[in-house]
Amino acid sequence: MGETETGGETLRARHVLEYPFRRSLGPILERFFTGLTEQRFVGSRLDDGRVVVPPAEFDPVTAAALGADRLTEVGPGGVVTTWTWVGAPGPKHPLDRPFAWALIRLDGADAPFLHAVDVAQESAMRTGLRVKPRWAAAPVGSIRDVACFEAEA
């Protein structure tokens, strides 16, 4: 329980509920996150030939297990397929200034991938924008190894 006001009839306190779950990745997603530490995007090829990123452990249509032989590298560049503007970033957001959450179809992939795009203002965002990753200075094996995406020069 945080600070408690003592004025007024009813009290009010700031509560924080946080579960720091640690999730095991398994043999497929392990390759995706390890790839991020090497500045590579690892996706996988589904039974119908489509490529998804992050890689799938099971085919979403046939439900067949997808092995490591299906892994394939995509990106690093991509195209924005849709986006939304975050005018007031929260404390856990990847950027401390206004930015866009975007679905980005990485080159070679058939399904989009969610990440932040850092542009100067909302008017600079558009569907079809070509973007590239800005890698974090010190990779740790997390989605935050991609600091954000930015417009291609």
Binding site: H15, V16, F21, R22, L25, L36
Partner: peptide, 11 residues
Amino acid sequence: VKSIVTPIRLE
């Protein structure tokens, strides 16, 4: 990379 931490936070 064998695992990731995925915090769920509600303030």
